[in-house]
Amino acid sequence: MDADIQEKQPRGIAELVSVVEALVFVSDEPITVKTLADVLEEDRETIEAAVEELKREYDERAGGLQLRELAGGWQLSTRTEFHEEIRRYLKTRPSAKLSLAALETLAVIAYKQPVTVPEILEIRGVQSASAIKTLLDKKLITAKGRKETVGRPMMYGTSKDFLLQFGLKDLSELPSIEDFEDLTQGL
């Protein structure tokens, strides 16, 4: 064995990919490229290249795990195909889904944020107080300050939990609201 191994040697890409994989594995929430770069004392570009390589390996292998970009970081998770077996093992059932009212309200907030209650009312045509409460309780939305207008209404926006629960890497990954217009014409 080489005695000089303790000396700080530039890591090869293969080694870097391995250590990135190890870190992504231990992190209990999506780990950011910045965190990885800080811990490994590498620059962002190098880390990004390593993460991409790792993702490619996972995709190529098409095993039980996938590496995906989520809420601004990277996360290892199981592939959707195996959810039945996993549920059978975990003995859990999918958690209750959001109501129609809550989902609609969430859609308005996600696309129009930061948005006030009166603005949500305008689009939904219905009071949304209980839906907003549910979304706040589930931490899917957060208050984003007050709008400097009559009555200074509270503005709402989506949270990091929203990205996590809906499997989004960031808000830009949401399809454009205009894309939903085509469906409308078919009414």
């Binding site: 594995f25 209990d28 996360q75 290892l76 998770s77 199981t78 592939r79 959707t80 959810h83 996993i86 975990l90 999918p94 958690s95 889904k97 959001l98 129609l100 989902l103 609609e104 969430l106 859609a107 996600a110 696309y111 629960q165 809906f166 499997g167 989004l168 399809p175 609201i177 939903f180 469906l183 409308t184």
Partner: peptide, 19 residues
Amino acid sequence: NAAQMLYERTTVEQAVFAR
């Protein structure tokens, strides 16, 4: 329609498990 898209996304997400 956007709400429906979100609904579909949660359905998919509920089939994914992290460590």
